[in-house]
Amino acid sequence: MNRRSGPVVAGVKVLLTLMYGLPILWIVLTSFKSSADVVGTQSSIFFRPVLTAYVDALDGALVDALRQSVIVATGTTALVLLLAIPAAYGLARTTGWLPTLGLGLLIVLQMMPQTATVIPLFQVFASWGLLDSALGVIFADAALLIPFATLLLRPFFRSVPPQLEEAGALDGASVLRTFWSIVLPVARNGVYTVGTLIFLLAWGEFLYAVNFFLSPGSYPLSALLAQQVSAFGIDWPGLMALAVLTSIPILIVFAATYRRLRDGLTVGAVK
């Protein structure tokens, strides 16, 4: 297929390489600069790399933020999968008005702007005593991501041949048992893909975290970054070091799951 990949295609590829390569390169380069290096010009490529930004960033506060990020992201992923997997299976295998209504509601919920839900949730959490706790943020993130996860998981369950389950039923296995030992193993790729996506999204979520945690001391990494970047007099090397540290777990997850993400992401969208 390469035979006639003409100059236009090459041009598009150069443009995209610059557009997506440079930002990543610049985050990493800047994080190794000293503050003095970015005062005059921020764009020098040649400079003496220093670890000042990382040394400054790596204090107790960062460790706390990292711990908070891990708690929120893994807690959210677990809760979302726990609720979305059965829901997606139920929607894939039932008929009638209930699943149709359920699907419609999930579509609407998944489109809800987060800026609209953060306002009432703040009040609801205040009256339930869930403000300033990781549990509150996990609940809010889960409510945000369950519609997305369910809609994405459903096609994976639909593609499990019903005959497999009927065979299980003939052997006298209960619905719960056929689901657990027949359907779930067959659909596990979908579960991994969706689990990865939920983790990535929960790791990056910051609006709920900024508003529901009442002091920056308990912010996760993403919220800490959001707070620092909208402050005056930004310390760019420090900020970029924080950005790199926030991104490293994403890089690990990405490296482990890229193939699955690339192919699995489009399952729900294109059928």
Binding site: V229, A243, T246, S247
Partner: peptide, 18 residues
């Protein structure tokens, strides 16, 4: 795809810088 997977705060920060 990696850039897409990065938290929006990270992408937003670097573009604010650029």
């Amino acid at each position: 795809v990696f850039t897409w997977a990065l938290p929006p705060v990270v992408n937003g920060s670097v573009w604010k810088f650029l």
